[in-house]
């Protein structure tokens, strides 16, 4: 077993799939010659050339639209959005085009497109470069959404996303890029299925359903709560937002009787609200205490470090929410 960074895991997934499948190509800003603003596509142009690693002008609508078109005729584009906030610049191509295409065409056209890039707060990039977008995407049937937290899951899920015949949004987090984790040897093939959660910590008292960087914050909070209060938290890493693995969440709640959903996108009308609502709809009898969600407070993300940390659903806020629920 070796260890790799999250960045390296993503880079390897793309490299392996491009070696395996001629129809996979990369397109985006600064991804080729420079290797990506965050160096995620490093060395790709050297290996695969300008034909399959395409540096674009700053034209998100145009190149997202072209990727959709190329996918409609069977190629497998991987589009990098430099910051996920920029999805709004090309939202029509993502939602009205890619996500609806299979349905509108009565199943005649597939759009095997991957949109990937980093999101999230924590690095003081401010309001237009820090948003988390999974809840918005969850409103649109037709596109899958995954947000892995570990290098292992990132590599396995990206391979699954590339092989999927539907559009998939692959969400990275800027705070995860340099984290390291266990990784099978490079030759060892594996995938992580889309739509399957993973228990990252076992516990008896309360279930936290989360994903992406919030998972790391949750695991830290769980250790501290155990040491300080003796509270034993089970952590369900959703890994996929669409489709949502509610079954795993409810299995855990059957054990703990308490549910808290944590994520960095907005709390208001966010995916956590959906998880809580579904718990009440599908298995209200499992809940010993009111289920809750903790997302981003209703404000854009500020630059100032203490303000950013005040608003984000990180360790301090997670611990406070848990303590309230256990009272």
């Amino acid at each position: 077993m070796r260890k790799t960074t999250y960045i390296q895991a993503i880079n390897e997934a793309m490299r392996d799939e491009m070696r395996r499948d001629e129809s996979v190509f990369l397109i985006g800003e600064d991804i080729g010659h420079y290797g990506g603003l965050f160096r995620v596509t490093r060395n790709m142009m050297e290996e695969f050339g300008e034909r399959r690693v395409i540096d674009t002008p700053i034209s998100e609508q145009g190149f997202m639209g072209m990727a959709v078109g190329a996918a409609m005729v069977g190629l497998r584009p991987i589009v990098e959005l430099m910051y996920m906030d920029f999805f709004l610049v090309c939202a029509d191509q993502i939602f009205n085009q890619a996500a609806k295409m299979h349905y509108m065409t009565g199943g005649l056209v597939n759009v095997p497109l991957v949109i990937r890039g980093q999101q999230g707060g924590g690095k003081r990039y401010g309001s237009q470069h820090s948003a988390s977008v999974e809840s918005t995407f969850a409103q649109f049937p037709g596109i899958k959404v995954v947000a892995p937290a570990t290098p292992y899951d990132a590599k396995g899920l990206l391979i699954s996303a590339i092989r999927d015949d539907n559009p998939v949004l692959f969400l990275e987090h800027k705070m995860l890029y340099f984290t390291r984790g266990d990784m099978p040897d490079a030759e060892e093939q594996y995938t992580v299925p889309i739509g399957k959660a993973d228990i990252k910590r076992e516990g008896r008292d309360l279930t936290i359903a989360t994903f992406s960087y919030s998972l790391l914050q949750t695991l830290e909070a769980a250790e501290e709560l155990k040491a300080e209060q003796g509270i034993d938290i089970e952590v369900v890493d959703l890994r996929s937002i669409t489709p949502l693995d509610m079954e795993s969440v409810l299995m855990s709640v059957a054990k703990t009787g308490r549910l808290l959903a944590v994520h960095e996108s907005q709390s208001n009308a966010g995916i956590g609200a959906e998880i809580v609502a579904r718990a009440y709809e599908e298995a209200p009898y499992l809940l010993k205490a009111p289920a809750r969600r903790l997302g981003m407070a209703p404000a854009p993300i500020p630059v100032s470090k203490p303000l950013e940390e005040e608003l984000l659903p990180w360790k301090k806020n997670i611990k406070a929410a848990v303590l309230e629920m256990m009272r």
């Binding site: 997202m64 639209g65 078109g69 409609m72």
Partner: peptide, 22 residues
């Protein structure tokens, strides 16, 4: 595909042309 959003189908065709080129 015909498209209900004015202009949206234009990059699609360019993307199909890109696919031919690739």
């Amino acid at each position: 595909g015909a498209n209900g959003i004015v202009g949206a189908q234009v990059p699609h065709a360019a993307g199909m042309a890109l696919a031919s080129k690739i």
